[in-house]
């Protein structure tokens, strides 16, 4: 009898250990309640981001187009009006402009209540940068990983600008580095303009805008004829991270 309890327990543990984590890239909001959807919309200032053909201007007045745009969002926490915090477990998401599903996150089985604040990290925390082979959103196959100097590329935009010096006017900003003075990890905390109310019968969506123009705006205005490429952990990468730290805002909650 005793042994069968142990056996059951062992089976149970194995079962937990083996449960496959949902692949955040292919996940779409479904109606398991209670849950919160977090929907990212990439913009350049007030315009929606369009890849390849749409021309934008940075704060310096340089014209540019964007061919790809990706960033990691990790360690998402949601806070209730009573101050309590809900941390998403194993919270790693790669937002990719060219994949619609990647921009819609679903946090399932969240306790019911009134949520007023969200917090997340832009990038992958330092621990996961030193923990060996990862899978899902963190699989190096996603191309967001430096091999010669281990670490994730936390955010990355590619495009072109006539002002960029590198042939053929390429822009490539690969922002990474998780330690030391050039650490690019940035926490974002956003108050919700109205409560996200999670009940057993109602699921809520938080719409977040991410404004790519901020990468090149403040505190350091980027002139593409001076800087058009960053591909390693460096002071330049840190400056861009300082710039984009405030690129997120809540559009609305519904």
């Amino acid at each position: 009898m005793k042994y069968s309890i142990y056996a059951l327990l062992a089976l149970f543990l194995i079962n937990i250990g083996c449960r496959k984590k949902d692949d955040p890239v292919t996940q779409t909001p479904v109606t398991t309640i209670p849950q919160i959807n977090i929907i990212f919309k990439n913009t350049v200032d007030n315009k929606p981001l369009g890849l390849n053909n749409t021309k934008y201007q940075n704060a310096n007045g340089d014209t540019f187009t964007v061919s790809s745009y990706q960033y990691y969002i990790s360690n998402i926490s949601l806070f209730k009006d009573d101050g309590s915090e809900y941390k998403e477990s194993d919270s790693y998401h790669l937002i990719n402009e060219s994949s619609a599903t990647s921009k819609q996150l679903t946090i399932k089985n969240i306790p019911t209540g009134d949520y007023v604040k969200i917090r997340f990290l832009i990038g992958v925390d330092s621990l996961r940068n030193v923990s060996g082979a990862q899978t899902g959103a963190l699989d190096p196959i996603n191309g967001m990983f430096w091999t010669w100097n281990t670490g994730y590329i936390m955010a990355r935009m590619e495009g072109s600008s006539p002002q960029a010096g590198i042939y053929p006017n390429n822009l490539g900003f690969h922002i990474g580095g998780f330690e030391g003075p050039n650490n690019v990890l940035r926490w974002v905390t956003l108050q919700l303009p109205s409560k996200a109310i999670v009940t057993n019968s109602n699921n809520t969506s938080i719409y977040i805008n991410s404004n790519l123009a901020e990468w090149f705006k403040t505190p350091l205005t980027i002139n593409f004829s001076n800087i058009s490429s960053i591909t390693s952990s460096s002071y330049g990468a840190k400056m861009i991270a300082d710039n984009y730290a405030d690129m997120f805002s809540i559009d609305h909650v519904e």
């Binding site: 030193v130 923990s131 060996g132 281990t150």
Partner: peptide, 20 residues
């Protein structure tokens, strides 16, 4: 790992020669 210590974990090492 590596002569310059650029790789911080034995599991993160093989991707290097594969892609190089």
């Amino acid at each position: 790992f590596f002569w310059d210590g650029g790789v911080n974990h034995i599991e993160s090492q093989p991707i290097n020669p594969i892609k190089n």
